[in-house]
Design a protein around this nucleic acid. Sequence first.
DNA 1: CAGTAAGCGAGACGGTACGTCAAGTCTTTGT
DNA 2: ACAAAGACTTGACGTACCGTCTCGCTTACTG
Lengths: 210, 210, 210, 210
Amino acid sequence: MAQKTTPDSTRRSERSRRAIYDAALALVGEVGYAKLTIEAIAARAGVGKQTIYRWWSSKGAVLLDAFLDLAEQAAEAASAGHDTVQTEIPDSGDLEADLKFVMRATVDEFNDPKYDAPYRALAAEGLLNPELGREFVEKLLEPQLQLFVDRVRRAQDAGQVRPDVDPRIALELWASPLAQRWLMRSGALTHEYVDKLVEYALHGIAPRPA
Amino acid sequence: MAQKTTPDSTRRSERSRRAIYDAALALVGEVGYAKLTIEAIAARAGVGKQTIYRWWSSKGAVLLDAFLDLAEQAAEAASAGHDTVQTEIPDSGDLEADLKFVMRATVDEFNDPKYDAPYRALAAEGLLNPELGREFVEKLLEPQLQLFVDRVRRAQDAGQVRPDVDPRIALELWASPLAQRWLMRSGALTHEYVDKLVEYALHGIAPRPA
Amino acid sequence: MAQKTTPDSTRRSERSRRAIYDAALALVGEVGYAKLTIEAIAARAGVGKQTIYRWWSSKGAVLLDAFLDLAEQAAEAASAGHDTVQTEIPDSGDLEADLKFVMRATVDEFNDPKYDAPYRALAAEGLLNPELGREFVEKLLEPQLQLFVDRVRRAQDAGQVRPDVDPRIALELWASPLAQRWLMRSGALTHEYVDKLVEYALHGIAPRPA
Amino acid sequence: MAQKTTPDSTRRSERSRRAIYDAALALVGEVGYAKLTIEAIAARAGVGKQTIYRWWSSKGAVLLDAFLDLAEQAAEAASAGHDTVQTEIPDSGDLEADLKFVMRATVDEFNDPKYDAPYRALAAEGLLNPELGREFVEKLLEPQLQLFVDRVRRAQDAGQVRPDVDPRIALELWASPLAQRWLMRSGALTHEYVDKLVEYALHGIAPRPA
DNA sequence: CAGTAAGCGAGACGGTACGTCAAGTCTTTGT
DNA sequence: ACAAAGACTTGACGTACCGTCTCGCTTACTG
């Protein structure tokens, strides 16, 4: 409503939208987020600059939508078969084993350059731009964390996690350290590392009574 | 000697250096990191642009040095008496109490706008710029985490933490979730929250045998 | 038949045509010819851009038609009664008096802002665009000059102008200086000025034998 | 004083100034004034756009200075030798012959494409832009007309022109028709034409007593 | 009297140029 | 001799219009 004139989304060119997503993702991988420009995206996509400015407010917003689209496509591919993208956390009955499995897969995923550059860029942009940061968290981060919440709750039902534990906080014990190490490059990302995170989180670091 | 001409640091103007730090920190608070420009820093500091380019390679580098200087000053003030900046983690003999105390203080610190803007800016820049990211981790992040490592090790000596636990990983159980929530704005930062982090980390979320 | 599709002028919307003329003339007065845009004309006229592009090749062409329409309306009003627009030069038998009368009226007309902006714009555009310039001369300029030709010829018949004089050239002696001063703003436009032009043109500036 | 910051003209790059003049004159000849762009001038001159915007307010202003510079160079060349550019009107004692000579030369000059395109462009721009128009008249037009004023005054002293004639108006009798025909393309520019203009102007079109 | 084809308002599109901002380099000037 | 001042080339910004192109809608003619 605050726009000069709100564009009519029914007349939007699907062709251009896809080309912009492809160009944005390709370019962020090639030159990095800092050197990513709207002009370059438009040129690569064979699109007028105004077509980007009409639908997005910043390069960060473009990249976010492009990445969400990428994730959506990956999810569809996964549900249609068997892919690495996690759409649910397995429940074998053994919480520790399941978490380790998922965390190891996540470690592997963080090294796929297809996801690394845009994901990292969005995280960085989100730090500085609260608007985009909120959207990033809401649309990308929280849905992934919610899977852990669900799995922990099932573990609570099965008596494998204390009932007074808050699952939303508990999952941060293993998820945040991994994310932090990845983002900050502050430590190696190995299977052993995430195994330990899960063990410590489940059993604590304090000595347990025999 | 590959430089065009290596600047002679003995001739460096201390006056200009301080003015640049002050200007950079003030401006990042006023307009944000994205809109922070070298020209504005130079103008505000009453300094030629070349004087900045001579000594730093990017606005991130200027800000990092400015922030390190700020931290150093704060540390000196702290050691000289009475300040909030943590230079060591207390050891009352009760690890849980000590960690909760420090974590609560850290929560409070994260809300001080004097630190928030530049710290957040440096973190964001570090995500994208590995060079600066490494320096950020090495000079700012690790020294603070090292304090936890030391405290956990003392707790191990006192038998309050299992000897097979890796302290460097253990501290991430509480430090990373807090940092992540702050950076991503993905949750409220309260004393209750960090209390629970510490409790879960020490005792695990799994049921303990009676 | 070289056109993509020749528009069918029988189906043309008279309503739109008038609205476009009104909008063009109003806008050229408000913002000037340089800032006159097809989009603004279309918006002001409540008309699609294509409706303009269908019938005209440039903003100059629109304005020329709009101005011709304006002149035509004025001429009709004049012939129907009593208006300032010259449709014929009076012939009182005294060429000098008649020319002075008409020239003084012309001076007054050049100061009417209703005509000044579009006329000036068309002249300027005509300087650069030979196509439009030709049309401008043919449809606007020459018809007005032809009135002088006729009057001079009648004066020749009456023996008031030498028979070897070319009327088409003669009229330029008074018409061009006035037009030039107006266009170039290179001098004041007063009744005294045009009086002198007429006098000099009729009698020459050289001394006459007693 | 009203500028954001007034540029320091002592530090101005002479090299860039010349390159801009050359580029502007070349381009206006190649693509015409309407399609002349600041970007193209900058690119052709190997100069940043800002360097143009720093010193001129519009493409018209650039072109005016470029043309003035061209005229100045031509004048220097002429005074240093023998060129077509008129720097003074000959005085053979016979006003009619002298005027015809100069007018014929002017006709020839109007056909030199080197002058035609920029001169026409400046005239057109001057019609719409009073600011630039005034400068055009003051710096280009009037100095040339002043030569006629001087010559007519000398003719008055010699008794070849009536003493009550205003030379500034008289010269328009021949100068304006030629200019008008050239600008408007409203008639052929021939030697015969200007001869007649001079004759009519000097002796009038009315019959003279034997 | 329906069917169809045109003109129409609307506005998204691929483009070009605008005029501005800042980057990083280089030169001049004053102390 | 150095540093402030700032002009320079470069390149991206976000905006304004260009002229073209659908899209539904209305309106008139035609079968």
